[in-house]
Structure formats: structure tokens, C-alpha cells
């Protein structure tokens, strides 16, 4: 984000938002945990917005933001719980998804202006998943999302045409109901064939899409290996950050074909410079 002129500060003593587990056990807990985080963020000076880089965390926090505006009774109940930690939620914080900020606040023009090595020739399948789009459609169409496209095109890449961008990756089913989740991911990987990479805006989706490719390929009897990148990593490549800065070594699926193509585009960019 520094490359794009945005300043981020970490919330002091952040805690877990409850992920998808809290809601599966207790409604009040699933609201109280994100409320803790928002209340801590409210105490920080000069911050009015919170950027959330994961779609599941985003939705958990967003729900509480909505409640703090529209449901005083429930807000009071949440505050009774927060009182235990001497916290109080007023509802001043605006919860923003990473993609929302990249696509609308920073925007393609600024990204283009900071372009160091264009990713021309790469064919990218934008993957949004569920919870940044639904149920709160803040910055995109909940059924046919497009908000990532200008951002991807700004760095010179093309969009892989597909209609799986808003489909579900299975979320925590991958652990509790693997058979079902593997089917969902298989359908997404199949539809991405022909693209050079899938770009995600949520680390949980990224993990589901990248970690089981061998198994899924075996199941489907075809090679479904596919490079999966988190959007900031993909943009970082074009903004001149090194693979080390982007911690590409931590990715679980970067294919050789992708590496070769990336090297070629970067070499040709160097020649034309």
C-alpha cells in the first residue's frame, strides 16, 4: 500500500474476529468478537476506517458496523459484553474491504501511474468469492462482480472471461466436509483453464484454491494446477516489488508455466524501457 501512497496502522492488541466458527456456535459471540476489534480501533487517533484484507473477517466486522447503526438494542447487548474488557463500541468506524479501497479509493489511474513492469500478455481470472459481495453489496454487483477488472487491466493484463468469480470456494467445509468443498473448488479450477492465474481478494479463498490442486486433479482425471495469487501480490509484481517482498515463496501453487511467462513479460518490459 505504501507504493500507492496509502498509510496503514495496525490495531493495537487485535484479536480474532471468530472466523466462520463463532457464528456456527453462538450468535452473540459472533458479534462480540468483531465488536472488540472495532471498539479498539475506535480508540486510535486519526483513524475512521478499517481496511480488512480477508472477506470472512470483513463480513464479520461489517455486520457489527451495520448493527451499531441500526439496532440500538442489540448494540447495547454487545456493549454489555464488551464492558468486561472495559471496551465500548460507538459505531464510528467504517469497515472497508481491501478490494473496495484498491478499486475505488486508490483506483486504476494511480496504479497505472506507479506501474514499473507491466504484466502484458498475462490472462487473469478475477476471483471474488462470496463474503465481500454478499449480503452487503457495497462496492460491486453481488452476482456479476466486475470491480477487479479495471485494477487488473491497469497493470496491462487481460481478463479471462468466466462466470465463476462470485462462486463459493467452500470456506471451512474444506476441513469439516472435504468431499463437498473439493467439488466446489474443482468447478472453479476447471473454469479457469486457459487463464495464467486466478487472483483472489481473500486469503481463505486463496488457501482453498491453492492447497488441494493435486488431489483435485487426481479426482477429475485432468491437470488442474493453476497459479493462485492474492491481489496485492499480483499488483506488487507490476509495481516493481520483488518476489521476496511479496513473499511469493509462501504461495502453495505457482506453476512453472506462470513463472516462465512472468519472466518473459518482465524481460520484454526491461527491453522496452
Amino acid at each position: 500500500m505504501g507504493e500507492l501512497g496509502a498509510e496503514l496502522v495496525e490495531i493495537e492488541d487485535w484479536t480474532c474476529c471468530g472466523a466462520s466458527a463463532a457464528e456456527a456456535t453462538s450468535y452473540l459471540l459472533s458479534l462480540s468478537l468483531p465488536a472488540c476489534i472495532l471498539a479498539k480501533a475506535e480508540k486510535m487517533d486519526d483513524t475512521s476506517q478499517i481496511l480488512v484484507p480477508c472477506s470472512a473477517c470483513y463480513l464479520n466486522l461489517k455486520k457489527v458496523e451495520e448493527i451499531s447503526r441500526n439496532n440500538i438494542e442489540l448494540l447495547n447487548k454487545i456493549n454489555t459484553v464488551l464492558q468486561e474488557e472495559n471496551l465500548h463500541l460507538q459505531g464510528k468506524m467504517k469497515v472497508r474491504h481491501l478490494l473496495d479501497i484498491l478499486a475505488r479509493d486508490i483506483g486504476p489511474a494511480k496504479i497505472f501511474a506507479n506501474l514499473k513492469s507491466p504484466l502484458t500478455g498475462l490472462n487473469i481470472a478475477p476471483y471474488y468469492g462470496c463474503q465481500c459481495l454478499r449480503p452487503y453489496s457495497v462496492f460491486d454487483d453481488p452476482e456479476e462482480p466486475r470491480s477487479m477488472e479495471p485494477v487488473i487491466e491497469a497493470v496491462g493484463a487481460k481478463i479471462h472471461p468466466w462466470d465463476m468469480g462470485g462462486r463459493c470456494c467452500g470456506a471451512s467445509h474444506m476441513t469439516t466436509k472435504p468431499d463437498v468443498a473439493l467439488e466446489l473448488v474443482a468447478a472453479i479450477l476447471k473454469a479457469a483453464k486457459g487463464a495464467d492465474a486466478i487472483v483472489t481478494v481473500c486469503p481463505m479463498c486463496q488457501m482453498n484454491l491453492e492447497a488441494y490442486q493435486k488431489k483435485i486433479s487426481g479426482m477429475s482425471g485432468e491437470d488442474l494446477s493453476m497459479t493462485i495469487l492474492y491481489l496485492p501480490q499480483f499488483l506488487g509484481l507490476a509495481l516493481g516489488l520483488s518476489e521476496q517482498d511479496l513473499r511469493m515463496d509462501l504461495n502453495l501453487s505457482i506453476t512453472k508455466a506462470f513463472r516462465d511467462k512472468l519472466n518473459r513479460t518482465q524481460i520484454s518490459a526491461d527491453i522496452h524501457r
Binding site: 466462520s20 454478499r134 453481488p142 470456506a171
Partner: peptide, 12 residues
């Protein structure tokens, strides 16, 4: 209900 992966398509 245990197979719901919370994708919000039905709600939408």
C-alpha cells in the same frame, strides 16, 4: 444446514 457454507446466494 450443516452443509451451508455461508455464501449468501439464497439470501440475495
Amino acid at each position: 444446514f450443516s452443509l451451508c457454507s455461508v455464501c449468501y446466494y439464497c439470501t440475495l
